[in-house]
Write a protein that binds this DNA or RNA. Structure first.
Lengths: 149, 149
DNA sequence: CGAAACTGATTATATAGTATAACTATTCGT
DNA sequence: ACGAATAGTTATACTATATAATCAGTTTCG
């Protein structure tokens, strides 16, 4: 009997354990780039979508706007992104990657992909595809307020 | 183009998003039982393996021993578990569920299973099986110090 | 026997992630 | 013009997790 019997058939428990491994690996991979998960994700999205606003970015990454301020401060201080004024709206700031930011984004993304390939070496292509389908389905489950009625 | 393009093919990113949904649902499910994730997991394992030690429990759940002390204090204070002295070793404490603890463990586990079923309603049996296989494979990836040599 | 190394549990502390509320400045709707 | 809504920021709190140090008790072995 496994030491955590009773929990091993729970999707949440299993994903937590697996994700912890991925997260630890990811942290090691990003460390030489001076990035952590949120700044990394933000930088990649900004690189792909120059001019995106902070609110849009927060929505895209499913994090609170307020929790993005410090990470973006860090990226800006390192000269990886800039916050540009938006002509029509003086509240908004357009996030744009600098050339250094673009370079770092691509390099970090390549490193992450390489390490993920290693992490998933023991998983078949078909199972990876199933994993992605399952994640997509879970992500889109409705929030279940008043399911009755 | 999705707002988080460039990240959506990363396993870590997708699992993080999906796990966040599961975690939020799990918190809601456990709330009426007065449990959170770690105490819940601990209680279930203790219920299944009466007499387990805190170090063993920590290893089983992959958490640090020190991070288990407060949750176990809570469970003990609520009369759900007891820490019994171990005859042969006066350092060790054997964790045992009380009748109330056993009852609550089973009720909470049933509720969690029911809600997971709802959460996974849109995922085929085969894909769930693949998800479990993928998680198992990821969990057992070696720690990768000196891969070269 | 008795010192050193080890183990089980605990305490204290630091860091990261996340959630919430409140605030400023600006824009929009009427 | 006025109130509501929006973009960004600040402050704060709570949870999770990691680490080091401490204390009591046990084991090893000269």
């Amino acid at each position: 009997m496994r030491a955590d019997a009773g929990l091993r058939d729970l999707v949440g428990y299993r994903m937590k354990r697996a994700f912890a491994v991925i997260q630890a690996d990811l942290s090691r991979v990003l460390e030489p780039f001076g990035l952590r998960m949120i700044p990394f994700s933000a930088l990649v999205v900004i690189a792909r979508q120059p001019g995106i606003g902070q609110g849009q970015l927060a929505a895209a990454l499913a994090v609170e706007r307020s929790n993005l301020v410090a990470p973006l401060d860090g990226l800006e201080a390192r000269g990886l992104i800039r916050r540009e004024a938006v002509p029509g709206d003086r509240r908004a700031l357009a996030l744009k990657p600098t050339p250094a930011g673009l370079t770092l984004a691509e390099a970090a993304l390549a490193a992450v992909r390489a390490h993920e390939a290693r992490l998933m070496a023991g998983v078949s292509e078909a199972d990876v595809a199933a994993l992605f389908r399952a994640c997509a389905a879970i992500e889109t489950v409705p929030e279940r307020e008043e399911t009755s009625g």
